[in-house]
């Protein structure tokens, strides 16, 4: 990778999910290549690519309130290898819950990685309700009217190499109100239970590991 290039790194184990879709939206503007985080084997080659990029954009899903373990492993390997000198770093994290605070830790994690390893943190984008998209275009997002222009502004920051403020994603997404929260809880639980029943399981049964121990 040429030092002037932008590296688009997908930190999801799923290659056709929302994390990839968001990077492909950036790719349409910057023309950069999307690189996928390998789920097995050494991360050495990928660290070398990171060292050689001028700008790194990491997009990943939110697992238990931050990025998946394999990305943390990459960041630990990159910190151990060193060799960074001012590379610009942007982050994107998307998760199922509609609250920014649920997913915010991912960006803080990247910011700390950047600050401790001589990269230049440029900000990021938190996308709530991202899992519902399941790779479908951002125009299908429930807050599309505010989220689409905000994310496109985020892309313009990446293309220009300028910092992206957190107010971009904070102002584009507001949490659902009391009634909508109740509707979501019932609807999503209905869909989850329907899926579990479809596979022949009782959603109210004790966990499989507990039943195995009885």
């Amino acid at each position: 990778m040429d030092k002037s290039e932008i590296m688009l790194l997908c930190a999801s184990p799923r290659r056709k999910g929302t994390s990839t879709m968001l990077l492909e939206r950036i790719q349409a503007v910057t023309g950069s290549e999307v690189v996928f985080l390998p789920q097995k084997d050494s991360l050495h080659e990928l660290v070398l690519v990171m060292q050689q990029a001028a700008t790194i954009v990491i997009s990943g899903p939110c697992y238990i309130n931050t990025y998946p373990a394999r990305l943390i492993e990459l960041l630990e390997a990159a910190a151990l290898a060193g060799g960074f000198s001012g590379q610009k770093l942007y982050g994107i994290i998307n998760g199922g819950m509609p609250y920014i605070h649920t997913h915010q830790h991912g960006l803080t994690c990247l910011q700390l990685f950047a600050e401790q390893n001589h990269l230049s943190w440029q900000g990021g984008f938190v996308l709530g309700c991202g899992a519902m998209l399941d790779g479908k275009p951002l125009e299908k997002h429930m807050n599309r009217k505010t989220v689409v222009p905000a994310f496109d502004q985020f892309i313009r920051h990446i293309a220009a190499g300028t910092p992206s403020p957190s107010c971009l994603y904070e102002q584009a997404q507001s949490p659902p109100g009391k009634i909508m929260t109740q509707v979501f809880a019932k609807l999503l639980t209905f869909l989850v239970e329907k899926s579990i029943k479809k596979h022949g399981h009782d959603p109210k049964a004790a966990n499989w590991y507990l039943r195995e121990q009885e």
């Binding site: 697992y63 238990i64 931050t66 998946p68 373990a69 394999r70 943390i72 492993e73 960041l75 630990e76 830790h105 803080t108 994690c109 990247l110 700390l112 990685f113 401790q116 929260t181 109740q182 979501f184 809880a185 999503l188 639980t189 989850v192 239970e193 579990i196 959603p203 966990n207 499989w208 590991y209």
Partner: peptide, 27 residues
Amino acid sequence: VVFGGVSYHIKKIMDRMAAVGDPRYRI
């Protein structure tokens, strides 16, 4: 404490705990 979170050894355990989580929603 790794980048304000946990190490990847611990994060792998956390990510895989979804199997013993309750996938239904509550408020």
